[in-house]
């Protein structure tokens, strides 16, 4: 059995969130990734069964979005933003450095399965550039050195905490469960806002406000 009864029950509860079953396809795909790390054939077929569509209609959706992977990624999936602003601010240099350091390229994983690398697009943290996301947690204001340190620590099983996220960096599969809309109880951890986010407020309080 590709999915346990418990997992199927969770899938049913995801489907029940929506007025129409088909809407559940996206969280269901994240959920499959939380179990297998990527979108498996079993996952596609199970989702097709749950939302009552053809398997082809599921692959049409799963292949459209960047976050759904057709092959396993590392336990720690490192996304380096290389959109213009981050690239100019250092993202390109960071990517080249960490790619060289790990010996892997875009969409590739280290042999020990620990770390994979991806060039990502703007992640809505431009005031913290250069930005790196690991398993979609924020690592703000990075440099080539800090990212090399990050991946080394991750490979050793002891990655640093996100800048604005939970106290401990969670794995790809664990965070995929969050993206399926399932709570892991960690929302209370981490800052409410980083320094750049608070900059305007701080200045306003110091005399620039109405």
């Amino acid at each position: 059995m590709a999915f346990t009864t418990e997992q199927e029950a969770i899938m049913d509860s995801i489907v029940a969130r929506y007025p129409r079953k088909r809407s559940a396809i996206m969280p269901l795909l994240h959920f499959v990734q939380s179990i297998y790390g990527y979108v498996t054939k079993d996952g596609i077929e199970k989702i097709a069964e749950k939302i009552e569509v053809e398997a082809a209609e599921v692959t049409a959706v799963s292949t459209f979005y960047t976050q759904y992977k057709s092959e396993p990624v590392g336990e720690y999936h490192v996304g380096v933003c290389i959109n213009t602003l981050c690239a100019v601010m250092g993202g390109d240099a960071i990517y080249d450095s960490v790619s060289d350091h790990l010996g892997i390229g875009n969409h590739e994983t280290t042999k020990d399965g620990k770390v994979s690398l991806e060039k990502i697009e703007c992640n809505a943290a431009c005031d913290y550039a250069p930005v790196v996301m690991v398993n979609w947690e924020f690592f703000d204001n990075q440099t080539p050195q800090s990212v090399r340190n990050l991946v080394d620590a991750a490979r050793a099983g002891n990655p640093p905490a996100p800048t604005r996220g939970p106290k401990t960096l969670r794995t790809w599969k664990q965070n995929s469960e969050v993206l399926a809309g399932l709570s892991d109880g960690l929302s209370g951890e981490g800052v409410s806002a980083g320094p750049a986010t608070l900059l305007g407020l701080k200045i306003a309080k110091e005399g620039g406000s109405k």
């Binding site: 992640n123 809505a124 979609w136 924020f138 996100p162 939970p166 969050v178 993206l179 809309g181």
Partner: peptide
């Protein structure tokens, strides 16, 4: 989807 902690906050 690329912001796990934001998702956590909104969900909670």
């Amino acid at each position: 989807g690329e912001v796990a902690h934001v998702v956590r906050r909104v969900q909670k």
